[in-house]
Amino acid sequence: MVIAVASGKGGTGKTLVATGLADVLSEDVGAPVLLVDCDVEEPNAHLFLRPEIERTEDVHHLVPQVDADLCTLCGRCAQVCAFNAIAVVPTKVLVFAEMCHACGSCARQCPEGAITEVPLTLGRLEFGHAGSIGFAHGLLEVGQALATPVIRELKRKAQPEPGSVVTTIYDAPPGNACSVVETLQDCDYALLVTEPTPFGLHDLRLAVELARDALGLPVGVVINRDGLGDAGVEDYCAEASVPVLARIPFDRRIAHAYSEGQLWTQALPEYRPLLRSVADAALRAREVRQ
């Protein structure tokens, strides 16, 4: 079972819900849990779970390298590159590695076999444990733009032991674009965290369009900072038949625990049942679907 915790808008409490859910599932339900922080641009879950990192590995992708002795400067590589990562001038081939998508088309199309592909580091993956919770996250290298390949590799490598029954929680990046699609693909359930403001509503609509309508995932909503703002989100959820699984009240103590990097479910155990009900609802939705 893979639950992705997502939200159109940033800062609605994805990490709060993802880490709280991992804690409650692991401790109260006794289920083996793997938390994977897929927000490789700004990973935060480690700040709350404080995992011990046991293993790291770099994420590479393959960029072209031209053998000047074999190259005839025919220009085919620049012509087939859809991303303008290659230019051919009268004396040499210039490769702009940071533009490259690693599709391999240039190497395949080169009539002289003059192009080989060499690895370029995009980021780093870290794996470990926070108590009994398995943990993994990725870190995009500063100045690198390609978050999706790092997420793709993170998801591929952060797998539970074959045959074990593990609940995997993905803490998704904010937004609704490529990196979120990469995270949500092949998940079993999307938990959408929002806040009861016009911004929260606007971005929740987009998140529902993406997760439910485009990717076909069952979705449920958690409203964070309930009590502030207005009723727009509740009205929309009722109208769009999106279940509201829980409402986390606006509570300065949660904000403070979060600001300190404390796991809020440990600092404020009275909220544990609330997350337990979220977990149960997600698990039920999956059974219904199967």
Binding site: D39, E41, E42, G143, A145, L146, A147, P174
Partner: peptide
């Protein structure tokens, strides 16, 4: 600006 430090932010 967008959140993050990746392509849109750059």
């Amino acid at each position: 600006g967008p959140p993050g430090i990746g392509c849109p932010a750059i």
